[in-house]
Design a protein around this nucleic acid. Structure first.
Length: 802
DNA sequence: AGCACGCCGACT
DNA sequence: GTCGGCGTGCTC
């Protein structure tokens, strides 16, 4: 078994295979499957994953593995298999699927260096470049006047060599510890000998005589109100010693969470949890769809099921949409399970993520609560997987590998023979349909645990407002209610469903709209920087003073961004204090929590924000929720737009009147008769489901069919269309007769980053060979893709069609 | 991906 | 003769 099969860190179709390497004698005993290694690849060195060990290879001249990067495998064999499945399922490269499972810091960084190999005189230009050093960064050469040809010659002569390095990004955090370095009686002697002036030294020695345990230096200095200087004197006297220990960056202070105990379950909850507990007890795998209205106590079910799993000595994965949005969620898990919980989400620094990952890998925790990628937590005895807010689209990764965490969860649930729980107040039609068919087990929680009714929802027809001469974006109704609320000292949440709208810039004279020069999309105005930005590429330009077309100075920004709404709101109701939450005000780390805390401490009357405020917030003093434009995403080119509208309205309505005070919801819309708005206002999921299912059936959309989306992009529009056409024809030849291939159609935003995009949609019911057809097509166009910069991307079960 | 190799054409 | 610019093929 002296040969390793390695998957190499290059995401290209021609390299999407294993490469064989000899295992040098010194690594024979330590190298195991799942470890990261450095291997020579052509002239360079790159990182790879060992996926197998064998004793034979079809190749005769094998190179040796240069180095091993891990002491314990970064990936378990289960995760290696899972990666293969994900890669196949999503039509991605194996290496891409594997990389997605690991924290960023485990990815390799590559560096080139020039090394001087001779002591004899080099040509003067090279002497100048090295200027006395033996090794320099390759970039220094690139920035110099020396030609590549000149370098090449020096390399050929053996005077200089180019070194290819693989650098690890891992950084471990260390703290300095201070401890007594001698017997305590020696410290006591020293204490006697100290001069009277040495008060601080005395204090320090006394401290260690009372507490002989090592202590973190920072803490010691703080506690004794002294400085590094004093400590250093005692270290120099060899009475104390200092040393470094590695610590985990724990982003959460486990002691700060108030411990909770199990709550008594309602009858409904008891009925729901029973089959889940049976699953756990019998090592069975079922998928449960937990359909429970907001406040019906889904989380308590999760917690008690997890408790069973922990008691059994197994582990739990809990996915939540984007955890930084719900600190309350972290509180609940940390409150129940304390330091047994690791938290994984995007707001953590790379180092913090790595440390949390290692705590999981070393089995120092039994529960992980995290966003999408936490589904790859390196546990080995998973006893339950929970996906909260199952309908959230953030569970679908939007770059490769384009996996859906729900699918991965179910696959892992099968391998670990454990239950998977999908929880939501507004399940996706896909999941609910499966529950109806009995593929998933349905559990319904129809009552709130506090027996409170859901808040009353009132729909306001904005057309009537317009006819009555109200041209603001606040109906008279909403204005009155807001004022009333403020008078009573209660709080308000206002949701601006901004998607589809943004603050674009238009000339009032000639109607010219500023667009991105690289994309077919209007630029967005950002007030704080006074810049115009493109949301698709990173293009930016200052806000012009005059129209570039007609030079008129009547160029203004339009649209209903949160900034505009805030301005209008404070003009309309001057006494209102507003906290605005959107991408601009929450970009900085921790600013999200800060704003929410301010609102919780009643520093403002109104919380105004986009989608991000619809989820999981729980403020007792909020009695009014206003949705400013309920229909803004109803008209997007997306077959899920009704479903998304229904989900959003239901979620946001649940933010009002969560505790003692009763709540109210006002929904402003131009299409009050639309079923998703009407049925959301009545919390009628079942009718919405039925209605929406008929639409999906008529137009043949999921869950009646599966979808695959191929996007073809090229700088040349004609080239993109023609290739798309060819691909459609090729697909048509291979598919079964109830499969439909649509297109090519221009992507909703035709041009992005100077590339034209055409797409082709496949709707299929049963097409077991589809992935292999697609792969064949990709192979067929592989040459062209490389030579002519043609790009074909595949998205199985897409969520975004842009 | 990214590197070497080879062919070509420009410039000295 | 010297040098840079692509197109092409290959990586265990």
């Amino acid at each position: 078994m002296n040969i390793a099969k390695v998957i190499v860190d290059i995401p290209v179709s021609s390299i999407n295979q294993t490469f064989d390497y000899l295992i040098p004698e010194k690594f024979q005993d330590i190298l195991s499957i799942g470890m990261r290694v450095i291997v020579p690849f052509g002239p360079r060195k790159i990182m790879g994953f060992v996926v197998d060990r064998t004793s034979e290879s079809a190749f005769d001249k094998l190179k040796e593995i240069s180095d091993v990067l891990d002491l314990t495998p970064a990936l378990t064999t289960e995760l290696l298999d899972l990666g293969r499945w994900v890669a196949n399922e999503t039509v991605s490269f194996y290496i891409t699927a594997l990389q997605a499972m690991l924290p960023q810091v485990l990815k390799a960084k590559y560096k080139k260096e020039l090394v001087r190999m001779t002591d004899s005189e080099l040509p003067p230009y090279l002497e100048e470049l090295f200027s006395g050093r033996d090794v320099i960064a390759y970039e220094e050469f690139e920035g110099s006047v020396i030609s590549y040809y000149q370098l090449q010659k020096a390399v050929q002569d053996g005077d200089i060599s180019i070194d290819y390095l693989v650098k690890s990004k891992i950084t471990k955090k260390h703290v300095t510890m201070i401890a007594p370095s001698r017997d305590l009686h020696l410290l006591e002697e020293a204490l006697q000998d100290l001069s009277k002036n040495a008060k601080k030294q005395k204090q320090l020695l006394q401290y260690f005589l009372e507490n002989s345990e090592p202590i973190e230096k920072k803490l010691l200095l703080e506690r004794l109100q002294t400085t590094n200087q004093t400590v250093k004197i005692l270290i120099d006297k060899a009475l104390l010693k200092s040393y470094q220990v590695e610590v985990y960056r724990n982003p959460y202070d486990d002691d700060a969470f108030q411990r909770t105990t199990e709550l008594e379950l309602t009858d409904e909850q008891e009925i729901a949890i029973k089959p889940i507990k049976e699953n756990i007890a019998n090592n069975r795998h079922d998928v449960f769809l937990l359909h429970g209205v907001t406040g019906s106590g889904k989380t308590e079910i999760y917690l008690q099921a997890i408790q069973d799993v922990i008691t059994k000595g197994e582990e739990a994965i809990v996915l939540v949409p984007e955890i930084s949005l719900t600190p309350q969620m972290v509180n609940r898990f940390k409150g129940r399970f304390g330091s047994k919980v690791a938290v994984m989400h995007s707001a953590l620094s790379a180092g913090e993520k790595f440390d949390e990952w290692r705590r999981i890998q070393r089995k120092e925790v039994q529960v992980v609560v995290g966003a999408r990628s936490a589904i790859y937590a390196p546990f080995e005895n998973i006893g339950i997987i929970i996906i909260d807010e199952e309908h959230e689209t953030t569970y679908k990764q939007e770059d490769q590998p384009r996996y859906h965490a729900r699918d991965v969860a179910i696959y892992r649930g099968k391998t670990h023979e454990c239950p998977v729980i999908l929880g939501s107040a507004t399940p996706t039609l896909e999941s609910y349909a499966r529950a109806q068919k009995g593929v998933y087990k349905l559990a319904t929680l129809s009552k709130r645990t506090n027996e409170k009714a859901m808040p009353e929802v009132e729909i306001v027809d904005m057309r009537d407002e317009l006819h009555a001469g109200n041209r603001t974006m606040f109906s008279r109704e909403l204005k009155d209610k807001i004022e009333h609320c403020i008078q009573k000292g209660e709080q308000i949440v206002l949701l601006l469903n901004r998607r589809g709208y943004s603050t674009f810039v238009m000339c009032r004279d000639c109607g010219h709209v500023k667009e991105c020069p690289h994309c077919d999309i209007a630029l967005t105005y950002h007030k704080n920087s006074n810049q115009l930005k493109c949301h698709y590429c990173s293009y930016e330009e200052p806000m012009p003073m005059n129209c570039p077309e007609c030079t008129s100075d009547l160029i203004r920004y339009f649209g209903t961004g949160t900034q505009r709404v805030e301005e209008a709101l404070t003009k309309l109701i001057p006494e209102a204090s507003v906290i605005r939450m959107d991408v601009d005000t929450t970009r900085r780390k921790g600013s999200h929590e800060k704003l929410l805390n301010q609102f919780a401490e009643k520093q403002a009357d109104i919380l105004l924000g986009t989608q991000m405020i619809a989820k999981g917030l729980d403020f007792g003093n909020v009695t009014l929720v206003g949705v400013l434009t309920a229909d803004s995403m109803l008209h997007l080119p997306d077959f899920r737009s009704s479903e998304k509208t229904f989900q959003l309205l239901t979620q946001v309505s649940g933010r009002a009147g969560r505790h003692e005070l009763p709540g109210e919801v006002i929904v402003q819309t131009y299409t009050p008769d639309h079923y998703s708005i009407e049925l959301a206002s009545k919390y009628n999921f079942n009718d919405f489901y039925k209605k929406e299912m008929t639409t999906r059936k008529t137009f043949q959309y999921p869950p009646y069919v599966f979808l695959a989306l191929l996007t073809i992009s090229h700088q040349n529009k004609v080239k993109a269309v023609q290739t798309a056409q060819k691909i459609v024809q090729l697909l048509m030849k291979n598919i079964q007769n109830d499969t439909v291939v649509l297109g090519p159609t221009p992507s909703p935003i035709l041009r992005v980053k100077d590339r034209y995009r055409y797409q082709c949609m496949i709707k299929y019911k049963n097409e077991p060979q589809l992935r292999s057809y697609i792969n064949k097509i990709l192979d067929l166009f592989a040459e062209e893709s490389r030579k002519e910069d043609l790009l074909i991307t595949v998205d199985m079960q897409p969520y975004h069609f842009m």
